[in-house]
Amino acid sequence: QVSDYVLSEAGFGADLGFEKFMHIKSRTSDLKPQGAVIVGTIRAIKSHGGVKFTDLSNPNSEAINIGIDNLIHHINNISKFGLKPVVALNIFPDDKPEEIKLVKSLLSNTKAFAVVESDSYSKGGEGNLELGEAVIESSKNKISPKYIYELEDTIKEKVHKLATSIYNAKDVKWAPIASRKVKTFESNGWGNMPICMAKTPLSISHKPRLKALPKDYTFEITDVRASVGAGFIYPIAGSIMTMPGLPGNPRSLDIDSKGNIKGELTA
Protein backbone atom coordinates (compact mmCIF):
# COMPACT_ATOMS: atom_id res chain seq x y z
CA GLN A 1 0.00 0.00 0.00
CA VAL A 2 1.50 3.30 -1.11
CA SER A 3 -0.92 5.62 0.64
CA ASP A 4 -4.37 5.82 2.20
CA TYR A 5 -5.68 8.18 -0.47
CA VAL A 6 -4.71 8.66 -4.11
CA LEU A 7 -5.87 11.83 -5.88
CA SER A 8 -6.03 12.29 -9.64
CA GLU A 9 -6.81 15.51 -11.51
CA ALA A 10 -9.29 14.88 -14.32
CA GLY A 11 -9.20 18.26 -16.05
CA PHE A 12 -11.87 20.78 -17.13
CA GLY A 13 -15.46 20.15 -16.00
CA ALA A 14 -17.66 17.14 -15.38
CA ASP A 15 -18.76 17.30 -19.02
CA LEU A 16 -15.21 16.74 -20.29
CA GLY A 17 -12.35 15.62 -18.04
CA PHE A 18 -14.42 13.79 -15.44
CA GLU A 19 -16.63 12.05 -18.00
CA LYS A 20 -13.57 10.85 -19.92
CA PHE A 21 -11.86 9.83 -16.68
CA MET A 22 -14.81 7.59 -15.84
CA HIS A 23 -15.61 6.15 -19.26
CA ILE A 24 -12.03 5.68 -20.46
CA LYS A 25 -9.47 5.69 -17.66
CA SER A 26 -11.52 4.20 -14.83
CA ARG A 27 -13.35 1.67 -16.96
CA THR A 28 -10.26 0.50 -18.85
CA SER A 29 -8.04 0.19 -15.77
CA ASP A 30 -10.84 -1.12 -13.51
CA LEU A 31 -9.91 1.57 -10.98
CA LYS A 32 -13.06 2.62 -9.13
CA PRO A 33 -13.05 6.19 -7.73
CA GLN A 34 -14.58 6.48 -4.29
CA GLY A 35 -15.02 10.23 -4.29
CA ALA A 36 -14.86 13.38 -6.38
CA VAL A 37 -14.08 17.06 -5.88
CA ILE A 38 -15.48 19.71 -8.17
CA VAL A 39 -13.82 23.13 -7.97
CA GLY A 40 -16.08 26.14 -8.43
CA THR A 41 -15.49 29.88 -8.18
CA ILE A 42 -17.75 32.86 -7.65
CA ARG A 43 -16.16 34.41 -10.74
CA ALA A 44 -17.00 31.45 -12.98
CA ILE A 45 -20.57 31.36 -11.73
CA LYS A 46 -21.01 35.07 -12.48
CA SER A 47 -19.43 34.57 -15.90
CA HIS A 48 -22.03 31.93 -16.71
CA GLY A 49 -24.60 34.43 -15.47
CA GLY A 50 -23.62 36.84 -18.24
CA VAL A 51 -21.06 39.07 -16.49
CA LYS A 52 -18.16 40.35 -18.60
CA PHE A 53 -14.64 39.31 -17.59
CA THR A 54 -13.73 42.88 -16.64
CA ASP A 55 -16.69 43.09 -14.25
CA LEU A 56 -16.32 39.78 -12.41
CA SER A 57 -14.97 41.45 -9.25
CA ASN A 58 -18.19 43.45 -8.87
CA PRO A 59 -20.99 41.99 -6.71
CA ASN A 60 -23.85 40.60 -8.79
CA SER A 61 -26.34 38.32 -7.04
CA GLU A 62 -28.59 38.19 -10.12
CA ALA A 63 -25.79 36.70 -12.22
CA ILE A 64 -25.03 34.17 -9.49
CA ASN A 65 -28.66 33.02 -9.46
CA ILE A 66 -28.45 32.45 -13.22
CA GLY A 67 -24.94 31.01 -13.47
CA ILE A 68 -25.37 28.60 -10.55
CA ASP A 69 -27.29 26.26 -12.87
CA ASN A 70 -24.01 25.46 -14.61
CA LEU A 71 -22.33 24.29 -11.41
CA ILE A 72 -25.43 22.37 -10.33
CA HIS A 73 -25.42 20.53 -13.66
CA HIS A 74 -21.79 19.52 -13.13
CA ILE A 75 -22.74 18.23 -9.68
CA ASN A 76 -25.59 16.25 -11.22
CA ASN A 77 -23.29 14.86 -13.90
CA ILE A 78 -20.93 13.47 -11.29
CA SER A 79 -23.83 11.99 -9.31
CA LYS A 80 -24.97 10.09 -12.43
CA PHE A 81 -21.80 8.02 -12.11
CA GLY A 82 -22.74 7.05 -8.55
CA LEU A 83 -20.46 9.54 -6.76
CA LYS A 84 -21.37 12.32 -4.34
CA PRO A 85 -19.00 15.20 -5.12
CA VAL A 86 -17.53 17.63 -2.63
CA VAL A 87 -17.73 21.16 -4.00
CA ALA A 88 -14.57 23.16 -3.27
CA LEU A 89 -15.45 26.84 -3.53
CA ASN A 90 -12.11 28.34 -4.54
CA ILE A 91 -11.92 31.70 -2.78
CA PHE A 92 -10.60 34.82 -4.56
CA PRO A 93 -9.52 37.98 -2.70
CA ASP A 94 -12.38 40.01 -4.18
CA ASP A 95 -15.12 37.48 -3.35
CA LYS A 96 -17.74 39.10 -1.14
CA PRO A 97 -18.97 37.28 2.01
CA GLU A 98 -22.58 37.72 0.91
CA GLU A 99 -21.79 36.11 -2.46
CA ILE A 100 -20.13 33.12 -0.81
CA LYS A 101 -23.12 32.75 1.49
CA LEU A 102 -25.52 32.94 -1.47
CA VAL A 103 -23.68 30.24 -3.43
CA LYS A 104 -23.61 27.93 -0.42
CA SER A 105 -27.33 28.48 0.05
CA LEU A 106 -28.13 27.75 -3.60
CA LEU A 107 -26.10 24.51 -3.43
CA SER A 108 -27.48 23.35 -0.09
CA ASN A 109 -30.21 21.15 -1.58
CA THR A 110 -28.21 19.66 -4.45
CA LYS A 111 -26.60 16.23 -4.79
CA ALA A 112 -23.27 17.52 -3.49
CA PHE A 113 -21.94 15.71 -0.43
CA ALA A 114 -20.68 19.02 0.97
CA VAL A 115 -19.85 22.58 -0.11
CA VAL A 116 -16.71 23.95 1.54
CA GLU A 117 -14.53 27.01 1.10
CA SER A 118 -11.08 26.35 -0.32
CA ASP A 119 -8.70 29.15 0.69
CA SER A 120 -5.28 27.56 0.33
CA TYR A 121 -4.01 30.39 -1.88
CA SER A 122 -3.99 32.87 1.01
CA LYS A 123 -3.86 30.49 3.99
CA GLY A 124 -1.78 27.60 2.71
CA GLY A 125 -2.63 24.07 3.81
CA GLU A 126 -4.70 25.37 6.70
CA GLY A 127 -7.10 26.89 4.18
CA ASN A 128 -7.97 23.42 2.87
CA LEU A 129 -8.37 21.46 6.09
CA GLU A 130 -12.16 21.52 5.85
CA LEU A 131 -11.95 20.33 2.25
CA GLY A 132 -9.67 17.43 3.17
CA GLU A 133 -11.97 16.36 5.98
CA ALA A 134 -15.00 16.50 3.69
CA VAL A 135 -13.27 14.34 1.08
CA ILE A 136 -12.40 11.75 3.70
CA GLU A 137 -16.00 11.65 4.95
CA SER A 138 -17.41 11.43 1.42
CA SER A 139 -15.26 8.39 0.57
CA LYS A 140 -15.96 6.29 3.65
CA ASN A 141 -18.75 4.23 2.07
CA LYS A 142 -17.69 1.88 -0.74
CA ILE A 143 -19.05 3.00 -4.11
CA SER A 144 -19.58 0.99 -7.29
CA PRO A 145 -19.39 3.53 -10.13
CA LYS A 146 -22.07 3.65 -12.82
CA TYR A 147 -21.63 4.54 -16.48
CA ILE A 148 -23.73 6.54 -18.92
CA TYR A 149 -23.31 4.15 -21.83
CA GLU A 150 -22.33 0.54 -22.43
CA LEU A 151 -19.35 -0.30 -24.59
CA GLU A 152 -21.63 -2.58 -26.62
CA ASP A 153 -23.78 0.41 -27.64
CA THR A 154 -23.28 1.67 -31.18
CA ILE A 155 -21.14 4.77 -31.65
CA LYS A 156 -24.19 6.91 -32.31
CA GLU A 157 -26.00 5.49 -29.28
CA LYS A 158 -23.04 6.37 -27.05
CA VAL A 159 -22.87 9.91 -28.39
CA HIS A 160 -26.63 10.37 -28.02
CA LYS A 161 -26.51 9.24 -24.37
CA LEU A 162 -23.65 11.64 -23.66
CA ALA A 163 -25.39 14.51 -25.44
CA THR A 164 -28.75 14.12 -23.72
CA SER A 165 -27.47 13.15 -20.27
CA ILE A 166 -24.17 15.03 -19.84
CA TYR A 167 -24.50 17.96 -22.28
CA ASN A 168 -28.24 18.51 -21.64
CA ALA A 169 -29.08 18.45 -25.37
CA LYS A 170 -32.41 17.24 -26.77
CA ASP A 171 -30.94 15.54 -29.83
CA VAL A 172 -27.80 15.00 -31.95
CA LYS A 173 -27.23 16.12 -35.53
CA TRP A 174 -24.58 14.26 -37.52
CA ALA A 175 -22.84 15.76 -40.53
CA PRO A 176 -23.00 13.38 -43.54
CA ILE A 177 -19.24 12.81 -43.51
CA ALA A 178 -19.37 11.89 -39.81
CA SER A 179 -22.18 9.38 -40.40
CA ARG A 180 -20.25 7.76 -43.24
CA LYS A 181 -17.16 7.43 -41.06
CA VAL A 182 -19.17 5.85 -38.26
CA LYS A 183 -20.35 3.12 -40.63
CA THR A 184 -16.77 2.51 -41.73
CA PHE A 185 -15.46 2.38 -38.16
CA GLU A 186 -18.13 -0.08 -37.08
CA SER A 187 -17.60 -2.28 -40.14
CA ASN A 188 -13.91 -2.37 -39.17
CA GLY A 189 -14.86 -3.70 -35.74
CA TRP A 190 -14.09 -0.49 -33.83
CA GLY A 191 -17.61 0.13 -32.54
CA ASN A 192 -17.00 -1.14 -28.99
CA MET A 193 -14.44 1.52 -28.09
CA PRO A 194 -15.30 4.34 -25.67
CA ILE A 195 -16.00 7.90 -26.78
CA CYS A 196 -13.51 10.73 -26.25
CA MET A 197 -15.55 13.79 -27.22
CA ALA A 198 -13.71 16.79 -28.65
CA LYS A 199 -15.74 19.85 -27.69
CA THR A 200 -15.37 23.29 -26.18
CA PRO A 201 -14.62 23.53 -22.43
CA LEU A 202 -16.32 26.94 -22.33
CA SER A 203 -19.85 25.57 -22.39
CA ILE A 204 -21.72 22.39 -21.54
CA SER A 205 -22.82 22.47 -25.18
CA HIS A 206 -20.72 22.49 -28.38
CA LYS A 207 -21.05 26.28 -28.67
CA PRO A 208 -18.66 28.36 -26.49
CA ARG A 209 -21.13 31.24 -26.11
CA LEU A 210 -23.96 29.15 -24.68
CA LYS A 211 -23.47 29.77 -20.97
CA ALA A 212 -25.10 28.54 -17.73
CA LEU A 213 -27.26 25.51 -18.59
CA PRO A 214 -28.17 25.33 -22.29
CA LYS A 215 -31.29 23.28 -23.02
CA ASP A 216 -33.60 22.32 -25.89
CA TYR A 217 -30.74 22.48 -28.37
CA THR A 218 -29.27 20.04 -30.88
CA PHE A 219 -25.72 18.83 -30.27
CA GLU A 220 -23.81 18.90 -33.56
CA ILE A 221 -21.18 16.38 -34.65
CA THR A 222 -19.21 17.70 -37.61
CA ASP A 223 -16.66 14.91 -37.90
CA VAL A 224 -15.49 11.75 -36.15
CA ARG A 225 -12.06 10.16 -35.95
CA ALA A 226 -10.64 6.93 -34.57
CA SER A 227 -7.56 6.54 -32.37
CA VAL A 228 -7.41 2.79 -32.65
CA GLY A 229 -4.03 2.42 -30.93
CA ALA A 230 -5.16 4.53 -27.97
CA GLY A 231 -8.46 2.70 -27.96
CA PHE A 232 -11.17 5.32 -28.43
CA ILE A 233 -13.38 7.08 -30.96
CA TYR A 234 -13.33 10.86 -30.86
CA PRO A 235 -16.20 12.78 -32.44
CA ILE A 236 -15.67 16.47 -33.26
CA ALA A 237 -18.42 18.66 -31.82
CA GLY A 238 -19.02 21.99 -33.54
CA SER A 239 -15.90 23.80 -34.74
CA ILE A 240 -13.52 22.78 -31.93
CA MET A 241 -9.80 22.50 -32.76
CA THR A 242 -8.11 19.30 -31.65
CA MET A 243 -4.79 20.98 -30.83
CA PRO A 244 -5.22 22.78 -27.47
CA GLY A 245 -3.14 25.42 -25.76
CA LEU A 246 -2.91 27.96 -28.57
CA PRO A 247 -2.78 31.61 -27.40
CA GLY A 248 -5.25 34.25 -28.51
CA ASN A 249 -2.46 36.12 -30.31
CA PRO A 250 0.50 34.52 -32.12
CA ARG A 251 3.65 34.62 -29.99
CA SER A 252 5.59 35.88 -33.02
CA LEU A 253 4.11 39.29 -32.22
CA ASP A 254 6.11 39.26 -28.95
CA ILE A 255 9.45 38.90 -30.77
CA ASP A 256 11.27 41.69 -32.60
CA SER A 257 13.03 41.37 -35.96
CA LYS A 258 16.25 40.22 -34.24
CA GLY A 259 14.57 37.44 -32.31
CA ASN A 260 14.51 39.23 -28.95
CA ILE A 261 11.49 38.86 -26.67
CA LYS A 262 9.61 42.11 -26.23
CA GLY A 263 8.37 42.98 -22.74
CA GLU A 264 7.82 40.30 -20.10
CA LEU A 265 7.66 36.66 -21.07
CA THR A 266 4.17 35.34 -20.32
CA ALA A 267 2.61 31.92 -20.56
Results as ranks from 00 to 15, higher is better:
V224C: 08
N192S: 10
K101Y: 05
Y217K: 07
K96V: 13
E150D: 15
H73M: 08
K258T: 09
D95M: 08
T242D: 12
S257R: 13
T266R: 15
K20E: 00
T266Q: 11
M197Q: 04
G189Y: 06
A169Q: 09
I64Y: 04
I100W: 01
V51G: 07
Q1S: 06
A169C: 13
G259D: 09
E117M: 08
S29D: 13
I177E: 14
N141P: 03
L83D: 03
Y147H: 14
G125C: 13
N58W: 00
E220P: 00
I42C: 11
K96S: 15
A230G: 12
V103G: 07
L89A: 12
S187V: 01
P85G: 06
K52Y: 00
A44N: 15
A175T: 00
K183F: 01
N168V: 03
P201T: 06
V182G: 04
E130W: 02
Q1F: 00
P33M: 10
L151N: 10
D4K: 13
E137H: 05
N60A: 08
D223G: 05
K170I: 01
F81E: 12
D55K: 07
Y149Q: 03
N58D: 15
V87F: 07
I75L: 04
L131G: 04
F92A: 13
I42R: 01
I148M: 03
A63W: 02
K215A: 15
E117H: 02
K25H: 09
T200A: 02
I233D: 05
L107P: 07
E98P: 00
L56G: 04
M22Y: 01
I155D: 08
E220K: 10
